Simulated scan of single mutants.
Amino acid sequence: MTCSKIFSGDLPELTEEIIQYFRKDFSTLYSCILINRLWCRLAIPLLWEDPFSKKYPENHHFIEIYLSKLNEDVKTKLYLYGVNNDLVSSNTLFNYPSFIKYLDIDKILNSIQTWVDTLVGKNQEKLVNLIYRSLLEMFIENEGNLHSFEVVLSTRYNYFNNSIDLILQNPNFAYNIRNLELRIINSIFLC
C-alpha cells in the first residue's frame, strides 16, 4: 500500500484515526487542512470544537467568522454599535457553529470582551451582551453537540441570567453534556 492512497482518501477510516491522534496538536491540525479535502473535512471540526479556549490567546478572528453566520437583523444591530460590516461579511466553507463541543461562559465573555475592546472600543457592555446572546442562539440553532458546559455565576455579570431562558427552552442543546460545571462567585469578596 502506498502513502498516496492514504492521502487521496482511499482509506478514510485510517485517515480519521490519524487526524484524531492529533486532536490537541493544533499546529499539526492546521497543516492537515492543507493536505486535501478529506483531511481538511476531518481536521476542521477538531479545530473548531473549542475555539474559546486559551489555545487562541491573541487571535479572536474566529468571532468574526461566527458573526458572519448571523442573520441580517443582528448584523444591522452590530453595525449600529460600530462594528464594521467588512468584519462580519465573509463567505465560509463550513458551518463552524455546528462543531462546538465545549462552552465555557466565562471564556466566551472574555473572548468577546477582548474582541470588542480591540476593534470597537471599551465600555461596550450592550454590544458584548448582544454578541454573547446571538452566539448562544446560533449554537442552539445549529444544534451544536455539547460535551462540556461550564457556567460561572457572578454578581458582577448577569449575562447568564439573560440567556438561561434560551438554554431552558432548548433541552436538546444540553442533552449530550458529559461535563457540567456550575460555579457561583460573589464578587463582593473578590479583590
Results as ranks from 00 to 15, higher is better:
169 Q>P: 02
173 F>G: 00
5 K>Y: 04
169 Q>W: 05
117 D>E: 15
165 D>M: 13
135 L>P: 04
153 L>D: 10
112 I>W: 10
165 D>H: 13
23 R>G: 00
179 N>T: 13
130 L>D: 02
104 D>A: 01
38 L>D: 02
170 N>P: 09
53 S>E: 01
159 Y>A: 10
137 E>P: 07
177 I>W: 03
139 F>I: 02
79 Y>S: 15
121 G>Y: 00
142 N>K: 03
188 I>Q: 09
31 S>N: 11
108 I>F: 04
44 I>C: 08
102 Y>R: 12
103 L>S: 07
48 W>K: 11
132 Y>E: 12
75 K>W: 04
56 Y>T: 05
175 Y>G: 05
128 V>R: 08
64 E>L: 01
129 N>E: 07
13 E>D: 13
121 G>V: 03
145 N>H: 15
152 V>E: 07
190 L>W: 13
168 L>P: 07
108 I>H: 08
87 L>W: 06
52 F>N: 03
57 P>G: 07
165 D>G: 05
158 N>C: 10
159 Y>R: 03
8 S>N: 11
92 T>Y: 06
2 T>M: 10
84 N>P: 01
91 N>D: 14
35 I>S: 06
61 H>W: 03
28 T>C: 05
63 I>D: 02
62 F>E: 01
61 H>F: 00
53 S>D: 05
14 L>Q: 02
181 E>G: 13
134 S>F: 02
187 S>Y: 12
13 E>G: 14
127 L>V: 11
17 E>L: 14
5 K>N: 15
24 K>N: 15
134 S>D: 12
47 L>S: 09
79 Y>D: 15
169 Q>K: 14
10 D>H: 11
170 N>G: 15
83 V>Q: 07
117 D>H: 02
37 R>A: 04
97 P>Q: 02
176 N>W: 06
14 L>P: 02
34 L>Q: 11
93 L>K: 01
5 K>A: 08
178 R>G: 12
187 S>H: 14
190 L>D: 15
130 L>H: 06
55 K>C: 07
95 N>M: 14
94 F>S: 04
126 K>F: 12
99 F>I: 08
8 S>F: 10
143 E>A: 02
